[in-house]
Design a protein around this nucleic acid. Structure first.
Length: 513
RNA sequence: GCGGAAGUAGCUCAGUUGGUAGAGCAUUAGCCUUCCAAGCUAAGGGUCGCGAGUUCGAACCUCGUCUUCCGCUCCA
């Protein structure tokens, strides 16, 4: 099975068993938006709990918050999102198609290079053995003319981009006689800045001054609450603030199932440190976060760091944790040393002093920040793709099994009466009642026992508890394990302890470094 | 956005030269009572992605459009 086939099967499986559905499917779906189904939400919640507890419960110097999605518009000026993440877009009035103005110009420049190459190839054929490419490129009037025009445009283009001169960008497109690939016309609109942030209006007077944005990252909700949390929680540096929440980015192209969505969920922790100590915390959090991923047991070789050469506007060091998805190694988490960029800018834009008095050094300073930012949906996809397996069984049978790490499996145990009479269903339901306050359970009495085991395999239930005639006599049941398919006989009274041992989140925490 | 592929039942897919929409699995209700999916009976479920056009007649031909996947591109 190729990776591409695996990915397609995974998407089909996710829909078939109620993990993930295309959004608004009865209306043909909404591009790059997905809904979590009855099992998907359990899986996602378990992943979030694993992350939250590993941060907030296991660290006495990390606390959580839940900030609003709407934030004061100035937040996004201070964060740099309003300024830095606009793309210049232009529409063709005939085809109604929208293009990035800078990309149109770059493509035109690439086309000029192609023209030159074609001239070179023509000449090479004409002059055969006596052809000197270097000389031709520097002397041919035709080539020189194209190259000069290309270079002139290049200079204007760079200048226009630097100055954010939208008029000039449009003028370049007109001067180069760039046409729309669809309509073939030069009937262009003005160039407009297109922000990757979603906009909406707040309040009754829906004019421009009331424009607010759906947050493009959850981090700013933490930064603007830095003083609130630090003071009310009596936090001492170094300390962290964790948050899980939705964020929104109006990506032009969003692809690959739930890997890149326009509405997505992040789990972020901003760790505030003394200036100058950020690099050691950066290294520490890189290691801590990697061990969190590896504790899931999907194979250490399926993870790697990707250190950024090109840093974002706020960072002085950045690395991605990449997972080996069916479509290659891709980012699931970013660890960034954000310096004092965010708190410093909020201090500047708000006019409020955002500083920490360090009792050890006796100094006040704007803390530095080391951020860990992981995509919930990408982690779900990572878990789904790592867990999906098709197995050949003895006797030629195959089974599809989701080998979820037991602590994050959507359903922890299924309770199955061997037959649906002789009082067995009643006993099974009593067992469900005993377990349901601690664990998500399922009851199933339909079809043969083997078939029911396979159904549970397909949704990744780690444990099946089977009630048979012996159960009525001696209060014991069979436990059937998902991965090994092995069975053992245990007393009903032991079940809570056994489940606690096998499916509790403690199993994962024990593996954390 | 460009290029390629696809869209028919919950899932996987068939559907002949254009002539009343099919299978397997799944689901539901019975029967059977079984520790690793295959027993029996019956039932429900489809505007063939959507919209035009051609035709006496379109799942099938033409055009448009939407959605998904792959490659390129982009990605705070």
């Amino acid at each position: 099975m190729t990776q591409e086939e695996l990915f397609k099967k995974l998407i089909a499986h996710s829909k078939e068993y109620g993990f993930i559905f295309p959004s608004s499917e009865i209306y043909d779906g909404l591009s790059a938006v997905y809904d979590y189904g009855q099992l998907g939400v359990e899986l996602k919640n378990n992943i979030k709990k694993y992350w939250w507890d590993s941060m907030v419960k296991l660290h006495d110097n990390i606390v959580g918050i839940d900030a609003a999605i709407f934030m004061h518009p100035k937040t996004w000026e201070a964060s740099g999102h309003v300024g830095a993440f606009n793309d210049p877009l232009i529409d063709n009035k005939d085809s109604k198609k929208r293009y990035r103005a800078d990309v149109l110009i770059e493509e035109w420049m690439a086309a000029q290079d192609n023209k030159i190459d074609k001239e070179v190839e023509k000449a090479r054929k004409r002059f055969a053995d006596s052809f000197n490419e270097e000389q031709f490129r520097t002397t041919s009037p035709r080539v020189l003319e194209i190259a000069e025009k290309r270079d002139t445009v290049h200079k204007r283009f760079v200048a226009a981009l630097t100055a954010s001169d939208l008029e000039e960008l449009r003028q370049i497109i007109l001067d180069c006689e760039i046409v729309c690939p669809i309509s073939g016309t030069r009937n262009w609109t003005e160039v407009r800045q297109f922000n990757l942030m979603f906009e909406t209006k707040m309040g009754a007077a829906a004019d421009a001054t009331n424009t607010i944005y759906l947050r493009p990252e959850t981090a700013q909700g933490i930064f603007v609450n830095f003083l609130n949390v630090q003071k009310t929680g009596r936090m001492k540096i170094p300390f962290g603030i964790a948050q899980i929440g939705k964020a929104f980015r109006n990506e032009i192209v969003a692809r690959q199932f739930i890997f890149r969505m326009r509405e997505f969920e992040q789990m972020e922790m901003q760790f505030f440190v003394r200036p100058g100590e950020e690099m050691q915390w950066y290294e520490k959090w890189k290691a801590t976060r990697m061990s969190w991923h590896r504790a899931l047991g999907f194979g250490d070789g399926n993870y790697r760091f990707h250190d950024h050469d090109k840093l974002a506007h706020y960072a002085n060091a950045a690395a991605d944790v990449e997972y080996n998805f069916p479509f290659g190694f891709k980012e699931v988490e970013g660890i960034h040393s954000r310096t004092d960029f965010d708190l410093g800018n909020h201090q500047k834009f708000s006019g409020k002093k955002i500083q920490y008095f360090d009792p050890e050094t006796g100094e006040s300073y704007v803390p530095y920040v080391v951020e860990t930012s992981i995509g919930v949906d990408r982690t779900v996809l990572q878990v789904l793709s790592a867990s999906y397996a098709e197995e050949q069984l003895e006797g030629g049978d195959t089974r599809v099994v989701m080998r979820f790490p037991a602590p994050i499996a959507p359903v922890k145990a299924a309770v199955l009466p061997l037959v649906k009479k002789d009082g067995l269903p009643e006993v099974a339901k009593e067992i469900i009642d005993m377990l349901k306050f601690e664990h998500v359970t399922q009851y199933d009495e339909k079809d043969s026992i083997g078939k029911r085991y396979r159904r549970q395999d397909a949704i990744g239930t780690p444990i099946c508890i089977t009630v048979d005639h012996q159960t009525v006599e001696d209060k014991t049941v069979t436990i059937r394990h998902r991965d090994s398919m092995a069975q053992e006989r245990v007393a009903i009274s032991e079940l809570p302890a056994i489940l606690d041992k096998l499916v509790s989140m403690k199993q994962l925490f024990a593996k954390l470094v």
